[in-house]
Nucleic acid binder design. Sequence first.
DNA 1: CTGTTAGCGCCTTCAG
DNA 2: CTGAAGGCGCTAACAG
Lengths: 340, 340
Amino acid sequence: MKASIQDVARRAGVSVSTVSRSFTRPELVSEKTREKVMAIAETMDFQISRSATALKSGQSFRIALLLSGPVTTWFNSHVFLGLNSVLQQRGYDISIYTISTFEARKEFFSTLPVRRNADAVVVCSFNIKPSEVSRLRHMNVPVVGVNISDYNGFDAGVKIDDRESMKTVVRHLVSIGHRRIAYIRTTHDTPFTFSADERLAGFEQACKEAGEDVQSTVLHCPIIPNPINSAVSQILALDPTPTALCFQTDDLAVPVLYRLRRYGRTIPGDFSIVGFDDSTYTSAIGLTTLHQDPVEMGKRAADKILDLIATEHTDQPFETFSTQLMLRETTSPIAIESED
Amino acid sequence: MKASIQDVARRAGVSVSTVSRSFTRPELVSEKTREKVMAIAETMDFQISRSATALKSGQSFRIALLLSGPVTTWFNSHVFLGLNSVLQQRGYDISIYTISTFEARKEFFSTLPVRRNADAVVVCSFNIKPSEVSRLRHMNVPVVGVNISDYNGFDAGVKIDDRESMKTVVRHLVSIGHRRIAYIRTTHDTPFTFSADERLAGFEQACKEAGEDVQSTVLHCPIIPNPINSAVSQILALDPTPTALCFQTDDLAVPVLYRLRRYGRTIPGDFSIVGFDDSTYTSAIGLTTLHQDPVEMGKRAADKILDLIATEHTDQPFETFSTQLMLRETTSPIAIESED
DNA sequence: CTGTTAGCGCCTTCAG
DNA sequence: CTGAAGGCGCTAACAG
């Protein structure tokens, strides 16, 4: 049914090597021969089989992407897009492994289902234990992290400085007069900690550094059943009322902002609000937020992976991406209260 | 370095077939032998190579997913999630091909880069020409559509009834008294038409069927540079002002809703607003919208693909999923004007 | 229930 | 520049 490389060779009156080279090392074949081969391959609907190439080369041409949640989140899908945009062209597919429960975690790292079937492993946005890192290393392929707190044992990694970024947010709010600031985070029943947890640490540190007159509060909002409800009700119940709200992510900030306005609060009048991510449509909405670029991070991670696969080395294996506070319409200055 | 099936066989004192069978057809191996083999495989870090399995079986264990835009959109990422959740367990990876320009379209269908390297092709949410369908058929693998208008030439497909769904939206608005209704859609410089275009057709048809006193308008908002701006300015400029706004997608509705409120309009007081998709957080925001479930569609599409690969047949190859209008806070009845 | 063996389709020396 | 040939790791007869 499908033409093999043999068939093409026969039909073109050349050897299989020549057909093979015409596809993979065209510079080694005379132009005339190559053109003839390619033309015949075209009519016979022939293409090099990636499975055969993979087998022959000993590579799997798959990259394992480990996620702790659905690929549909803003961050995950954009990292995936970045990785894929680079890797796909080079013949790699991405196999996604979602590890969202304690059992799945244990199962994954004990059985290591990707063993021998991935040319690299990417751990995206959650922290794993040293023992788990060494299990991954056991696979003898590059282990690369995206937004991982601790790169110990990793061959490469890309990240933003979550802690410092959140400190930037707080410093800005303080600089425009805010003194009562709340941090709103989600909590879930997850087996992992996340680099986003660093944001909270940054928040607390920055508030402390800002001096004694800055009052900070942290609100914990369980994902189940509904973090938005939890956030809105806790915010409204706070006494004294904060003047500024820092959110762990835009995904949380946007709906809460909505709901607060529905409850008659003005933004930025009653509350200044700052998100985190600069995700889709936050600019349209006018949300002040901390910008990061997960697509670019994915691309750079992919570059490093390709380097590591090719040469077991990559310049600058660990890279920290800059972020920027996008000042928009949900924040405004407050008159600094005069001291008595 | 890496242990092969031979090494395991040798170490276990059995033949390679026995090792192979222990992994792929355990029921054909005595429990005792199998346990021994698996234990040794474990210590040697052995796993069946998917590339070798693929080569041997003649399958590629890859499914090509054709998209017309980034995988990060709500619809695309959720379909991908659904497909992947079923296919991954069965050993398939998904290769994403994004075709977003006229040149890319021509290039893709003329060179068919996936030829012989995919066991099925999924066309997700854009329409291709009959000649392009037949090019895909040329690959001799199942061709499956997700939200495709015309299934001619496809082996299977899943979809919602976009036209009828939008008619439901309009009928509801009319039934609660609205008589001046605008439809807001995006336009882009894309080589394709989309099943979402059916929504517009449904809108126009339903308005017509609703009678002469229903006035409808269609606003076209170019994606570049900014569809939200375009939508907001056009809506505010309409005279007479519509009382209800139907949006092609939630992604468009949500920011526009935001901005309209910022411009002092009340929702649903001045405008009733209906979205389309029921995407993430629209329930938190209280957006009335048309619910669809792309994850489920992806899963069902994957089931059909597996059937088709296994038996060249699937029961009920074409499936239309039901949708539901989610009545929330952005719509309200209007007093029906008495006729003079 | 287990072993032997012939390829699956390609790539890569090595010769010419 | 081109051809011949071994073998990548596994699976599926077939034989026992």
